[in-house]
Simulated scan of single mutants.
Amino acid sequence: MTDTPDLGDLLGGGDDGLSGLLAQAQQMQEQLLKAQQEIAATELTGTAGGGLVTVTGTGGGVTAITIDPKVVDPSDVETLQDLVVGALADLDAKRQALTAEKMGPLSAGLGGGLPGLG
């Protein structure tokens, strides 16, 4: 009969090691969910043209666009389109920064906390 270690032994020394690992995974899952909820609820603003075009949104998407009447020129629609795209890009950059801020510590924890991921 071969004496092979069980999964609990491999992951940290019996049932205590396995339950500790499972508790750590559950805690990380809760932290991840909380971070995702914070990102979805945070309102961000992207601007272009010195504030002539403003795009407001959350981590979940765009909620409003404000365009200063000074930039509305029927003979130059391309400039307005560029400003809207620029404001959307600014909003996206801020959303990515927020995501990195909220999720970064959690992803760093994965490397040191779970076997085989570091």
Rank of each mutant, 00 (worst) to 15 (best):
T2E: 12
G12M: 06
P115R: 11
E78W: 01
T79N: 05
G13E: 09
L106R: 13
P105E: 01
D76T: 06
A89Y: 00
D16R: 14
K102R: 15
G8Q: 09
G12K: 04
L110A: 10
Q81K: 13
D76S: 07
L32E: 13
T99K: 10
V62F: 04
V71M: 07
G104W: 08
G49T: 10
P69Q: 08
D3Q: 13
L88H: 08
L106C: 12
K70L: 10
S19H: 12
E101D: 14
G46W: 01
D73M: 05
G61P: 10
G46P: 02
A48I: 04
T42K: 13
L21Y: 02
L11R: 06
G113I: 02
D16G: 07
K34N: 14
A64M: 06
D9C: 00
G20Y: 07
T47L: 04
V55E: 11
T63H: 12
G118D: 11
G14N: 08
Q29Y: 02
Q81Y: 00
D90A: 07
T79H: 04
G61M: 13
D16E: 15
V84C: 08
D82E: 09
V85P: 00
T56M: 08
A97M: 02
T66E: 14
L98C: 01
Q81H: 09
D3N: 14
A108M: 09
D73G: 06
D92S: 12
G12E: 03
G118L: 07
L83V: 06
D76Y: 04
V71G: 09
G57Q: 13
V77I: 15
A100R: 13
G8W: 02
G12W: 02
G17T: 08
Q29R: 15
A41F: 00
Q36I: 05
L21R: 08
